[in-house]
Simulated assay, not measured.
Amino acid sequence: MTNAEIAEAAGISARTFFRYFDNKEHAGIPGQLDFQHRIEAFVPVDGPPSSVLQQIEAMLEAEIRESAERNQITIRTALMFASEPALLEEAAAQLQRTSKVLQAIVLEHCPSLKRSVTLIITDLAMTTWHTSWEALGQRYKAGETITPLDNYREHCAMLREIVQ
């Protein structure tokens, strides 16, 4: 299906489609725009790196809790990522772009952090987010039952073990 066909099916012009989505893969990832808006609205409080990372994780947990209310979409999205490597690659590319937005926000609101520390914190947070979603899809595909939030928290705990 082309971008124009997707736009037509949605009842919008192709120009409007590209105002909201970079490409059709972007349009196919449920919740991506909500996620981007949450990142853009995030206002961290300046503090030590561990505190800023915890604030980012809390913001990401809030995103998971809200998306979990749309449980079937969450499960389908995780399974889609597990089954479609191209979609997972597109999600990773989008996450990289979103990470740059998060970096700019943290740099603006947390002047006590060095730039390199900010980049490490935001990249670790986004990598943990991405890894948790990829693992969630694999776990669902294998028949495991775990909530997205518990899965994400497990991945945050893994991060803590690694960086200590």
Rank of each mutant, 00 (worst) to 15 (best):
T131V: 02
F42D: 06
I64A: 10
T128D: 09
Q138K: 10
K114N: 14
P85S: 04
G31P: 04
M126I: 03
S83V: 03
T145F: 03
R139L: 09
A7Y: 14
I39C: 02
A125T: 04
E63G: 15
M1G: 07
F81M: 09
A157I: 07
P148H: 13
L88M: 14
L33N: 05
K114W: 13
I6G: 03
R97Y: 09
H155V: 06
Q72T: 11
S13E: 05
I162D: 11
M59Y: 08
H37I: 14
E84D: 13
K114I: 09
A157K: 12
Q72N: 10
D34Y: 04
K141S: 12
H26T: 12
R97H: 11
A41L: 10
P85W: 06
Y152L: 07
E40V: 12
P49T: 12
V45C: 07
I29D: 03
E8T: 05
Q54I: 05
N3R: 01
I121H: 01
C110G: 07
P30D: 11
R139E: 10
E89Y: 05
A68N: 04
V106L: 09
L87T: 13
R160G: 01
T145P: 00
G11K: 04
S116L: 04
L53F: 09
E25M: 06
E40T: 14
V43M: 05
Q32D: 08
S112R: 13
Y20M: 00
V117Q: 13
I146L: 02
R153I: 03
E161G: 04
C156E: 07
V52I: 15
K114M: 15
I12F: 00
P44H: 15
E63M: 10
N23R: 00
K100A: 14
V106N: 06
V43D: 06
P85L: 04
M158D: 05
Q36K: 12
E108Y: 08
L95I: 09
A86S: 03
Q32A: 10
E69M: 15
R76A: 14
G11Y: 02
I39T: 07
L79N: 07
A135V: 14
P85M: 02
G143V: 10
N3E: 09
I64P: 10
A62P: 02
R153S: 01
I146Q: 00
T131H: 08
A104D: 12
E134F: 11
I146K: 02
Q32K: 08
E40A: 15
Y20W: 07
I121V: 14
S116P: 00
R65L: 12
N151M: 04
C110V: 06
Q103D: 01
T118M: 04
A92D: 02
F21W: 15
V163T: 13
F42P: 08
G47W: 11
G143I: 13
I120A: 09
A62Q: 11
E84L: 09
R19F: 03
S112L: 13
F18H: 13
F35H: 15
A104P: 02
I120W: 05
E154I: 03
E66R: 14
R15Q: 10
V106P: 09
I6T: 09
E63I: 07
E8M: 01
P111H: 05
E61N: 08
L113V: 08
N151P: 00
I75P: 05
